[in-house]
């Protein structure tokens, strides 16, 4: 896919996520929107190895969505690349649906159940360690929220991964700077975030998490990282990216727009579909 195609794809995915959440009246729209370019790069951009017709394929890379509240985004992406029919998205949070607000691992293509924060990095460590033990070549990539980095368990796992030099593991922190009730730096400061990871034995890269250029520059060659320290990518993003009135507004956390706001959001995203 060309960059123009990926951009178009990202806009399409935002539309899908919005439609799902508006129809359901719930879902973490803004948490999903900040990670769109990251997931599109992974799944549409060819970074991850997977087989949508065989979700349990042994050789697949393991993508661990530790920030499980972004489940609408992962579900939309998985449907879009063919893990299950797109119609399932219309049943998000419905009685006859197969998924809801937080991630569940019985959905084709999903590796873990999450929603409780601070779990995914340790699980990723176990998967990466097992790959080393069994001499398997899959990569393990975990996407964390930045607010999630307030969890102590993240740092237990970070220390463990650094110690074991799991070079087959990449953590991406969606640094949208907002958690539930405000800015991370006002609540409990995370900065200097990259330095924290480095001091735990990681290599840290900071990028614009909405720039395909920067994402591919950092993640495009993860398979050639053998012998290096584990990689964390601090992806600076905008929470709610794509809908002007939701961007960087923490009170939109966990909410789907309704009524007039839903229409405005849809109109904005639709208009952007035509952008180059």
């Amino acid at each position: 896919m060309t960059q123009a195609d990926l951009k178009k794809k990202a806009r399409g995915i935002r539309n899908m996520v919005l439609d799902m959440c508006v129809a359901a009246g719930t879902g973490h729209v803004t948490s999903s929107f900040s990670s769109v370019e990251i997931l599109v790069s992974l799944y549409h951009g060819g970074i991850l190895r997977y087989d949508a017709s065989n979700p349990g394929w042994e050789g697949r890379d393991r993508f661990i969505l530790s920030k499980g509240q972004a489940s609408p985004l992962l579900y939309a992406v998985l449907a879009d690349v063919g893990f299950f029919p797109r119609e399932k998205l219309n049943r998000f949070c419905k009685a006859d649906g197969i998924f809801g607000v937080h991630l569940q691992n019985d959905v084709p293509g999903v590796e873990i159940s999450s929603g409780s924060l601070g779990h995914g990095l340790g699980i990723a460590a176990g998967l990466a360690l097992a790959a080393k033990m069994d001499k398997k070549s899959y990569e393990t990539i975990a996407l964390l929220g930045d607010g999630e980095c307030h969890e102590g368990s993240i740092w237990e796992s970070a220390m463990f991964i650094g110690h074991h030099r799991l070079d087959n593991l990449v953590a991406i922190v969606d640094r949208n700077r907002y958690c539930v009730t405000g800015c991370t730096e006002d609540i409990v400061s995370l900065e200097p975030l990259g330095k924290k990871w480095e001091s735990f034995g990681w290599e840290a890269a900071t990028i614009d998490g909405h720039s395909f250029d920067e994402i591919f520059h950092t993640l495009g060659a993860i398979r050639s990282r053998r012998g290096k320290r584990p990689l964390v990518v601090i992806a600076n993003t905008v929470k709610g990216k794509g809908v002007s009135f939701m961007e960087n507004k923490y009170h939109w956390h966990g909410l789907a727009p309704k009524g007039r706001e839903a229409k405005t959001a849809k109109a904005e995203l639709t208009a952007r579909m035509e952008e180059p």
Partner: peptide, 19 residues
Amino acid sequence: VGIAEENMVTVASGLALAG
């Protein structure tokens, strides 16, 4: 894993997912 029981469980979970 050292004195880090939460990480012990999550790492165990990942290992178990890998068989």
